[in-house]
Design a protein around this nucleic acid. Structure first.
Lengths: 203, 203, 203, 203
DNA sequence: CATGAATGAGTCTTCATTCAT
DNA sequence: GATGAATGAAGACTCATTCAT
């Protein structure tokens, strides 16, 4: 069903890339199909050859970019919960999403739009699945929250990265020189810290 | 005729309340001035009597709702950093923002719109200030990130709260029964956990 | 009917002055009552105390400013046409309107608005009356046209005056230094030149 | 279905024609895009397919209609000034603009709107260029004014034509029967009269 | 595969005007 | 004499979407 018989055309893939970039940067609502089309050098109508609707582009984005998340979920599902599993899940999530930062940004910063979108909800389902895998069985609300917060640390790291650039004269010696990769590394560490507090039932 | 409670029309205040409610629920872009006006039983033009522009309503929201944040900042500013100060700041932030959850939701879930808004940026500045007070002097990037993540825990708690309600058949015994207040309490605890890892320079 | 029993309030007069200034500068349509009110330091509603409607302000302008025109018309009416009368009429028109340049500008540059305005038509009537007095009895179309063109020379002079300021690098030695008064003088001369060609019936 | 006359839609051209007609008749500000669209039997949005903005329609009008003016300017530019050149320029201007009377009307009667329009200023530049060609080198202010007044005679003729029709009971025997063509002829003659007074430097 | 042309619904915004106080 | 609050109508403009070619 998801495996196409042919490369599905280059344009389709380019639309997805450009759309995600713009959605992450300017937001879903503020990004018009014309902008996407213009940046690709095609007409709006061309987009409609590849996608039935604007929301369908989101579906395309999710389908293409959520693979690492699905892999992590597949890896965790069925296995018994353990601190090691928990940490491995976070590592896989970080590895997969670190390179797909725009997707996370899009997800976190466009909830209102995504809430009304089938594709958006599908991605949210995955995030929630990931959360449940992280906190394991019989979680307290606190545990659920720790799992959730751990998953958001990546996005927070990006927020910080952008914020430091704009803020006037607030560049402490070290943080100004942090690269995106280093930021993601730090995000994983902090995520592990948070998750470490998750207390499994003492069976 | 419509029972005016106070001599000076309270319409302005009502606009702010309704607008924040709708902005948080449906998003800034998806909330039209017509919706706000309708829910208030006035015409769109009435909104323009009180606010020069849609974005100006955001400014109004921030000005009215950011007071607790400002108080917390004022409390922390000038004081020497200490773990106690850090925790007290978080407590004050939680106390102030817990009751203003919609504001936080609006802030986190509408970044694209807020990025292009003077009022939005003003609020962001406050959040960043709060972050710097939390991590104290000479922070590592990790410390900054911990401060940031701590501040987001409140919003994550709300995300969880909503997610549990909507998600189909995923109500684990305890979390379904968590009240908003309990959630905020948990959020504060997790925030304190995260912030506890902040390592001050060993002067 | 036009003679008020009292100074009619200072505000009324100030409204008229400011309105004409703005109407001439930015045009009738582009000038909002708010602009007029703001510049006067009063509220829009205050304007409505003095004038029933926006168009009524135009009526006020005409009533206050058209006096010199009426004087010239009164002077010419009833008298037998002669080249001397014609020239004297032009001189009086020039003397009266030179100081009321904004009125002429308003009239010439806002025809579309004035065409739909009772007050505007009233002023137009006066201009047409002036034209008929200028060309005298049994005019050819050419004569009428000469009279018309003569009356427009004042406005053309103002057009030139403004145009020279903006045009990039087009300031020939003499014209750049022309004052408004000199321009009006020149306008009268050219008007007399044009009118001189009017050929009266050789009775 | 609606009999498309030419392969490439002629809608753009029709918009320009209808828009100029309405702009000249009711004024730029008072003409809404809905009116233009309605008269063409299309929707407002269709206008926006062809023109980015209302002002862009003006640009379209000028680009399409100013050709004769450009031709006259091209003819005059570079040539040494002489009374013959001056008169030939006027003749060409009259020939070109006589058929485009609405454009002149639009220009003269909508200055406030045109002053704020790039397209409007572009046309004004041409008019000013035409003026400078007419008066030749080292003009006195009077000469410039004569050139200006000469160019306005066409518009004054139209003013007269319309005035006679509307004015109540003021139709002198001959002028009522003047056709548009005759009026333009008269306008050219008067223009030549005015321009004849231009005094070139006695080099 | 893709475009050119067009639509319908809706957005923010502005304005002249009104009226109780 | 004047204001504060509000309205109704309208305006320019944008956008996702459609469809014949």
């Amino acid at each position: 069903m998801t495996t196409p018989q042919s490369p599905r055309s280059d344009t389709r893939a380019r639309i997805i890339d450009v759309a995600l970039e713009l959605f992450a940067e300017h937001g879903y609502e503020k990004t018009s199909l014309r902008e996407i089309a213009d940046r690709l050098g095609v007409t709006k109508a061309a987009l409609y050859y590849h996608f039935k609707t604007k929301d369908d582009i989101v579906r395309g984005i999710v389908e293409k970019m959520a693979a690492p998340l699905d892999d992590a979920i597949a890896f965790g599902e069925g296995k018994d919960w353990s601190p090691e599993l928990r940490d491995e899940l976070l590592r896989r999530f970080a590895a997969g999403m670190g390179e797909r930062a725009p997707l996370l940004r899009f997800f976190h910063e466009n909830q209102p739009a995504l809430r009304e979108s089938a594709a958006g909800l599908a991605f949210k389902e995955r995030m929630i699945k990931m959360i449940t895998l992280l906190h394991g069985p019989e979680p307290t609300f606190r545990d659920k929250l720790r799992a959730t917060v751990a998953l958001t640390s990546m996005h927070s790291a990006m927020f910080l990265l952008k914020a430091d650039l704009c803020g006037p004269g607030r560049e402490s010696a070290d943080s100004a020189s942090v690269s995106a990769d280093e930021a993601m590394e730090a995000a994983l560490e902090v995520a592990l810290e948070v998750a470490a507090h998750i207390e499994p039932p003492a069976h």
